[in-house]
Design a binder for these strands. Structure first.
Lengths: 110, 110
DNA sequence: GACATATATTCCTATATAGGAATATATTTT
DNA sequence: AAAATATATTCCTATATAGGAATATATGTC
């Protein structure tokens, strides 16, 4: 079988770097497609397609304003990713702590 | 062009649900392949392949013990994902706050 | 209504899978 | 060294892209 569809879930949708960039660009304020195209120096059809994927998995919302479409990030959509990653937070904290301890031990010996 | 290789980065590697499950299973302690196979009720070659991908992007470490290979999660490898997701934390906090406010306003009106 | 602007969609293609089956490799045991 | 155990790798195939080009759709303006 092939890989799962990018539209199937948030993880797959965000596996694409361009889509992560778009989402970060839309984090603070809503923007029309044309501005994204300029900001990311990408083609218009490409951006539209990426926005389509982000919309399907609920990571962005759209609003029509005249002939523009204003897109904005739907932050809560990222929670599945955040929650998954956060599970491991304590482990790398410990890991870094051990590195620090070893560094200090080494320091002691000098 | 096709999608980026799963081995290219952490985001792509973790787009696959099975790999996320494997990583969570390896979070607390190192385990031999056979145990993962049993725990996740998957085929041995399948698990081996997934472990190969996780290893290539630095999400797991291996250690040989007799004829076993002990795998463990390398938590820090998840930081790119965590950092990305964390960027949006403040937004959904605000978003939830607004939902709460609206709910309270509504409550007031009754 | 003709024209311009903004965006979405369709069509095509090369490619990187993921899964299954079969096989190869490494290590221990007898 | 033969057999058994544990794991990795190879081979094959169906499929879901992502990108480019061309086109369609919707809306505003003259």
């Amino acid at each position: 079988m092939a890989r799962a569809a990018t539209t199937s879930d948030v993880f797959n949708a965000l596996a694409e770097p361009r889509r992560r960039e778009i989402l970060m660009f839309l984090a603070d304020a809503e923007k029309p497609v044309g501005e994204i195209v300029v900001a990311l120096a990408d083609g218009q059809p490409s951006v539209s397609k990426h926005l389509g994927v982000l919309r399907k998995v609920g990571l962005v919302r759209v609003r029509r304003v005249g002939r523009h479409r204003m897109y904005r990030a739907n932050a809560v959509g990222i929670r599945p990713l955040y929650d998954f990653a956060k599970t491991f937070e304590k482990y790398w904290t410990h890991q870094l702590l051990r590195v620090k301890e070893r560094a200090e031990e080494k320091e002691q010996r000098t």
